[in-house]
């Protein structure tokens, strides 16, 4: 029995789509990250119940943090954009979170700076506020330890390849790192959108739109690039094809990053015999109905698609490229920098 709704939606469903293909299907994956981060902050005494957690977000992290605050008796203050959608705004209001909405400009970096400036003012005026820094603070890795432990129990023997959108790096990076720390043979394949600075593709641009959940034109310092073995750059259109195929093949109704991961996974699994492919589906498809699913009859069949194999980020080409990232791993990898375990808080 779950003690809170956030706990209920934080853990993924493990769905085996084929003997060598497993989907970790989340309803809202960032809830797992936010719960782990808040729990870590409380357990280490950085914050106390009743304190306020603040961050800038206009998306799903805002909801995840609000739920985690609701779960642990914290206050939540979000600095977001006026473009925050109605569904999110109303949930935040009812959950008791404060939402400040600032008008966006055409410059993402400028918007981010203005939101950080506002967060800075709040922190200065309110000593009980704590800045979560979802893009930069590695405490957002902590919640995925339980996901890794459960995966290890359910797939105890075989070598694994984890495939997922990179985003802030917390989910894919933490899963691989925790599993490797258990002695598992794990390869990590990250998905990036064209235009993302994280793995050096800022010189490219997706003609449709950047899938913001898996990469950005602004830097996410949480990403540990040394953890990744392969990187796929996937266009909006091809991610759409993957999402439609995932629904058609398996019944899983998931978002664009899930579609991109499914596409990459299908390509990689035929090139990695003996390994079980585990891909992350971080959210449901509801938010993407009109953008991604409505014209499902017109999207390409993934079986007919293949990526450009390139030697690095300088050479990436639309609509889909893949490159080996860690050529001399694991020696290249740093020592583990995961948040240390917190006594009494283990699953």
């Amino acid at each position: 029995m779950h003690e809170h709704y956030a706990d209920a939606i934080a853990d993924p469903d493990h769905i085996r789509l084929a003997p060598d293909l497993v989907c970790l299907r989340f309803e809202v994956m960032k809830v797992r990250s936010a719960l782990g981060a808040v729990r870590h902050l409380l357990a280490t005494g950085v914050v106390r119940p009743g304190d306020t957690l603040v961050d800038s977000s206009s998306g799903i992290y805002a909801l995840a943090l609000a739920l985690a605050c609701h779960r642990y008796g914290m206050r939540c203050h979000i600095v977001g954009s006026t473009t925050v959608d109605e569904t999110l705004r109303i949930q935040l209001e009812i959950l008791g979170a404060t939402l400040e909405r600032m008008p966006p400009s055409k410059d993402l970096m400028l918007d981010q700076n203005r939101r950080v400036e506002r967060v800075g003012q709040l922190l200065l005026e309110n000593p009980g506020y704590h800045w979560m820094r979802q893009y930069h603070d590695s405490i957002h890795y902590a919640g995925y330890r339980e996901v890794a432990e459960r995966l290890d129990r359910e797939l105890p023997l075989e070598p694994l390849t984890i495939v997922g959108g990179v985003g802030t790096g917390a989910s894919t990076g933490a899963l691989a790192e925790y599993l490797r720390a258990m002695g598992r043979d794990v390869r990590l394949t990250g998905i990036q959108p064209f235009g993302s600075v994280t793995f050096g593709a800022q010189h490219t641009a997706d003609p449709d739109m950047i899938i913001a959940g898996i990469g950005s034109s602004i830097e996410f310092r949480n990403v540990r690039r040394d953890l990744y073995d392969r990187i796929h750059w996937v266009s909006f259109r091809y991610a759409q094809a993957g999402a439609v195929a995932l629904l058609r093949d398996s019944g899983i109704f998931a978002g664009l990053s899930s579609g991109a991961a499914y596409l990459a996974c299908q390509w990689e699994r035929h090139r990695a015999p003996g390994r079980t492919m585990v891909f992350l589906a971080p959210d449901t498809g509801h938010r993407y109905v009109s953008a991604a699913f409505a014209d499902h009859a017109d999207v390409p069949d993934p079986a007919e698609l293949s990526p450009h194999e390139v030697s690095g980020s300088d050479d990436v080409l639309l609509p889909w490229s893949v490159a080996d990232w860690a050529t001399d791993m694991p020696a290249q990898r740093d020592a583990s920098r995961l948040p240390v375990g917190v006594p009494g808080w283990s699953s």
Binding site: L110, Q112, N113, R114, V116, E117, V119, G120, Q121, L123, L124, W131, R133, H136
Partner: peptide
Amino acid sequence: VPLVADVWEGFPD
């Protein structure tokens, strides 16, 4: 002008 900022991120544009 006291500013909580991440290096220059948060300095008024």
